[in-house]
C-alpha cells in the first residue's frame, strides 16, 4: 500500500481518537494538577426560617461566596502540583505502612482509595481464573454435544452476557435481599436465618459470583470459536496413539488456545479493573467500593452543589495507571511472541 493511501485510511480514526480519547486525557491530566476554589468571605447574615406559626431568625457569621459584577460567584483555579494525588494516596501513611507498621497498614486499608484498590484487585484476580475455567468448560461441553443441540446450547449459554449489567446485578441482589426468594430458599435448606447483604464478605462473594456468571459466556464464545480450528488430523493421530481425552486436552487443545486465553485474560482484566455496575447494583458502597466507583463518587455533587472534579481526575488517572501496570506482563508476552515469529 502506498504511504499516502495508508494515511488517508487511518486519518479519520486518528482524528477521532485525538478528539475523543487524547484530548479528554490531557484535560483530565491538567485537572488533576489544579484545583478550582470558590472565593468566600465571612459576612454577618440574618436568616429567617419558617417554624410552625412562628419564624426563627438568627444572626450569625456565615461564609458567603464573593460575587463578581455579573452576580456570579468568583472562583480561582490554581496549580496545586500533586496535592490531589496526595489527598487520595496519603503518602505519609503509605510510607509508614510500607516500613512495616501494622497499625498504619490497617489504617491504610480503611482509606477510600486503598479500600477500593483492595476490592478492585481481589475482584479482578478472583474472577479471572473462574471466568477462564468456566468459559473453557462450557466451550468443551458445547463442542462435545450432538450437532443438533449446539444452536440452542450456544443461545442459552450466551444469555447472561446479553443482560444489561446493572439489571443483572439488581436481579441477583433482589434474589438475596433479606426477604428475597434466594435467601428464603437458602434458609429453608439450612434452617438458619441468613442475611447476605449485612456483611461485606457475603456481598463481595455475590458480586464475584455475578461477574463470573455475566462474563463467562464471552470467554466461552472465544474459546468455542478457537475449538473449531483445532487441527483434526492431529487429534485423530492422538486418538490412534491411544491418548486419553485429558491428554489430548493438555497437549493439543490448550496450546492451540493459548493466544486466545491471553486475549480473554487481557480483555477481562481491563474490564474488571473498571468494576462499577456491581457496586451500584448491589448498593454495596457501605461495605465495598471500587476505583471506578470512587471517581464517580467524587464527581457526584455534594450538598452544596460542588463536585470534587480535581480529586475525580486524580482518581481517574490512577485507575488508568493501574490498568496499564496490570496489563504490562501480558502485553510484553504478546510482544515477545509477535517478534519471535
Amino acid at each position: 500500500m502506498r504511504r499516502s493511501t495508508f494515511f488517508a485510511f487511518i486519518a479519520p480514526s486518528f482524528v477521532l481518537m485525538l478528539l475523543f480519547i487524547a484530548t479528554p486525557l490531557v484535560i483530565v491530566g491538567w485537572q488533576s494538577l489544579h484545583q478550582e476554589r470558590g472565593l468566600f468571605h465571612d459576612v454577618k447574615v440574618e436568616t429567617c426560617s419558617p417554624g410552625f406559626l412562628r419564624q426563627t431568625c438568627t444572626t450569625e457569621i456565615r461564609s458567603q461566596p464573593v460575587r463578581g459584577a455579573d452576580g456570579k460567584a468568583i472562583t480561582e483555579t490554581r496549580f496545586v502540583g500533586l496535592d490531589n494525588f496526595a489527598a487520595l494516596l496519603q503518602p505519609d501513611l503509605l510510607g509508614r505502612a510500607l516500613s512495616g507498621s501494622r497499625a498504619a497498614f490497617a489504617e491504610l486499608l480503611e482509606l477510600d482509595f486503598y479500600r477500593a484498590l483492595r476490592f478492585t484487585l481481589t475482584f479482578t484476580f478472583a474472577t479471572l481464573p473462574l471466568v477462564l475455567g468456566l468459559g473453557l468448560a462450557i466451550a468443551l461441553a458445547v463442542d462435545a454435544t450432538v450437532r443438533s443441540l449446539r444452536g440452542p446450547a450456544i443461545f442459552v449459554s450466551l444469555l447472561p452476557y446479553v443482560i444489561t449489567p446493572v439489571v443483572g446485578a439488581l436481579s441477583i441482589r433482589w434474589l438475596f435481599v433479606g426477604d428475597g426468594i434466594g435467601t428464603a430458599g437458602l434458609e429453608g435448606l439450612t434452617g438458619q436465618r441468613i442475611l447476605m447483604l449485612t456483611s461485606g464478605w457475603t456481598m463481595e462473594l455475590l458480586m464475584l459470583f455475578y461477574r463470573v456468571w455475566h462474563v463467562a459466556p464471552f470467554a466461552f464464545l472465544v474459546f468455542y470459536a478457537g475449538l473449531q480450528t483445532v487441527d483434526q488430523s492431529t487429534m485423530e493421530a492422538a486418538v490412534v496413539d491411544g491418548a486419553t481425552r485429558l491428554q489430548r486436552l493438555r497437549t493439543i487443545v490448550l496450546p492451540h488456545l493459548a493466544p486466545l486465553v491471553v486475549f480473554v485474560a487481557l480483555i477481562h482484566m481491563m474490564d474488571s479493573y473498571r468494576v462499577f455496575e456491581e457496586v451500584v447494583g448491589f448498593a454495596s458502597q457501605s461495605y465495598r467500593i471500587s476505583l471506578q466507583w470512587l471517581t464517580f463518587h467524587y464527581l457526584t455533587a455534594d450538598n452544596t452543589g460542588n463536585r470534587a472534579v480535581s480529586r475525580a481526575s486524580a482518581s481517574a488517572i490512577l485507575t488508568m495507571v493501574g490498568i496499564v501496570l496490570l496489563l504490562i506482563p501480558l502485553l510484553m508476552r504478546t510482544w515477545r511472541e509477535h517478534r519471535g515469529k
Binding site: V45, C48, P50, R54
Partner: peptide, 10 residues
Amino acid sequence: TPNQLVRIDG
C-alpha cells in the same frame, strides 16, 4: 403570612 417568607440577609 410573615412566617412563610424565607429571608436570607434580609
